[in-house]
Design a protein around this nucleic acid. Structure first.
Lengths: 358, 358
DNA sequence: CTGAAAGCGCTAACAC
DNA sequence: GTGTTAGCGCTTTCAG
């Protein structure tokens, strides 16, 4: 003799104010139980505390009413928000969207959401963003903005805020991170070049305040040594930014200085792009005159002419793994922090060939 | 005789549980006023209701305590969340990041935030996402996923949910939107081609269930007429997706069918890319044999060979304008809904030239 | 197993 | 101008 269900509201789409959304109390009343019982019945964690029959009734009523728990009220009570902060430099940099999707896809699977903020690499914006996210009670953070020395992240780690880094790491800290195996990637790229017969290889190194920049440079030096190649300082150009212009400038200077090289290992694809520009400007052909390999496998670098050979970083997986790490951390704050190194792959296209000139 | 301020806590960065974050009550106690008064003093909207002296004292105490209002508690009380939902097909499509940043940048300026969800163009995912966002009490939506016929959006509009569309619109509905002026863009592109001397121009039309697809096609036909060009059905290829493969397929079929053309107007850059592929496959050169113009000015299309001439849509501004429209709507729900058409620009690069072959 | 009661932090009537 | 009171919707002791 349950009362007839009320006129079914269109599930999922409620009016701004046309019909008040049902609350837990409504469900409880309708089901003839106390709100606390309804709460227990509806929450998977506590469902076992309530009589199975009652629980089913509550569920039926909830469905028929189109009841949806109010996460805000729940948050206020539990001080948990089912949300995390995802801090990136700039969404329009094609590196980051796959990471974001990786994070969101795994988070979404367990009812979590991410607040995304762009810092444009401005520490002040970053601090403000973190503060604002903390106000919104995020339970943890994923940062793609780590610098080698990063006071904010160090402080966050010190006070135990659940945090996972992606792509980049701090100089010294045990903050869990998910990064590509830069050293491995560089080794692959260098072996590729050496196998092709190249002996004079230059490196366009990225900013040395970021772990990626220093790791790739270090690995380059290691590869030089491993392959018995001369480690001349002239074979190295430090670029102040991961930007096309910086890459072009570096290669132009190399050329102007009369440095001999048949191949260049660019710290990333943007630098490689700049390299293409500078080479073209000097009437040098790629790969006939010089081979170049990039890093990241950005969208459309396969459309360049020649298509860019590059080291692919599994960005989506980076994001997904980071989300897993963070969730794990949130569930069991005690578990020791792990970091993950993801394998990279060389994508061999047309921008590398055996050296023609000495 | 104000009591000495407590030891200053590191502002902005609080421990997970080390020190409890100060609440309004703490501030009120410290300032010797009732929480309600503190609330009024701290809230710009109501600050005028309280004695200026008292208000200043409250502010001082709040600062010294590092007090930050809890948006969750406020939301629960006010039923407003200072957040909106931003629904896009896929963040990894380079079209969308600039839109997202446009939205977030203006929203952030007034204390709003956006929840971003990806639907992968799946209506079921979209419905689920909207529902989940409604649970989170978003105050409104920006949709980049509109189809000509879109029951969900129609329902949302019907019940008065503040909503703004970007890029695409519905067939018939007065939902406010911010889009590029597709008709104008196509007209510019066609005039460009005609001025170059092209008379045989084909159009690779995008999906016809999206407003962009039909608007660009309609404008193409209009341009044919305006310039006195023959409107032969063979000069048109409908593509089932905005994808490179679809573009390649279309052009290949055109070639196979012996259709004569010296220029192609691609519905978007991806289609243009496919066009490049198909042309190359047949040993045809661009722009020597055929000129192509794209649509969108995606990142890196200036790096193709030849660099793609395309119609640029100001995506960032689209997002920014949409945010403004939505905010306005949230402040004054009554104000009549406007839609905005943003001017497009032709980016003339190297992929168009006077026709060589007839 | 279920109900009662309290309270998360804040704001909005309503008094005074 | 300020305090009082109540309550947003939910969870969580604590009793029974």
């Amino acid at each position: 003799m349950t009362p007839p269900p009320p006129p079914a509201t269109e599930p999922g789409v409620h009016a701004g104010s046309a019909v008040r959304r049902p609350t837990l109390k409504d469900v409880a009343n309708e089901a003839g139980v106390h709100p606390a019982t309804a709460s227990r019945a509806l929450n998977p964690e506590t469902r076992h505390l309530v009589n199975d029959e009652t629980a089913q009734r509550v569920h039926r009523v909830a469905d028929s009413l189109g009841y949806q728990p109010n996460p805000i009220a729940r948050s206020l009570k539990t001080a948990r928000s089912s949300s995390i902060g995802l801090v990136i430099p700039d969404l329009t940099n094609p590196l980051f969207p796959p990471i974001v999707r990786g994070v969101e896809d795994v988070l979404g699977g367990v009812g979590y959401n991410a607040w995304i903020v762009n810092t444009d690499n401005d520490p002040a914006r970053e601090t403000a963003a973190v503060e604002s996210l903390q106000n919104r009670s995020v339970e943890g953070f994923v940062f793609a903005t780590a610098r080698l020395h990063h006071p904010l992240l160090e402080r966050l780690a010190a006070i135990g805020t659940p945090t996972v880094l992606v792509n980049r790491r701090l100089a010294m800290s045990d903050i869990p991170s998910v990064t590509g195996d830069d050293a491995g990637g560089v080794a692959m790229a260098m072996r590729h070049l050496v196998d092709l017969g190249h002996r004079k290889i230059v490196h366009l190194a990225g900013p040395q305040d970021l772990s990626t920049g220093v790791n790739r440079l270090r690995a380059f030096r290691q590869a030089l040594e491993d392959h018995g190649l001369e480690n001349s300082p002239s074979r190295l150009k430090l670029c102040s930014a991961w930007a096309e212009t910086a890459g072009a400038k570096a290669v132009t200077e190399l050329l102007d200085d009369g440095v001999e090289f048949t191949a260049v290992l660019a710290g990333n694809d943007l630098l490689a792009l700049g390299c293409y520009d500078a080479l073209a400007e000097r009437g040098l052909s790629c790969p006939d005159d010089v081979s170049v390999v990039g890093f990241n496998d950005m969208p459309f670098v396969d459309k360049l002419s020649p298509p860019l050979t590059t080291v692919r970083i599994p960005h989506y997986e980076v994001g997904a793994e980071a989300a897993h790490l963070l969730l794990e951390r949130l569930r069991a704050p005690s578990r020791s922090a792990r970091s993950i190194l993801l394998p990279l792959t060389l994508v061999n296209r047309k921008s590398t060939a055996p050296p023609r000139r000495l």
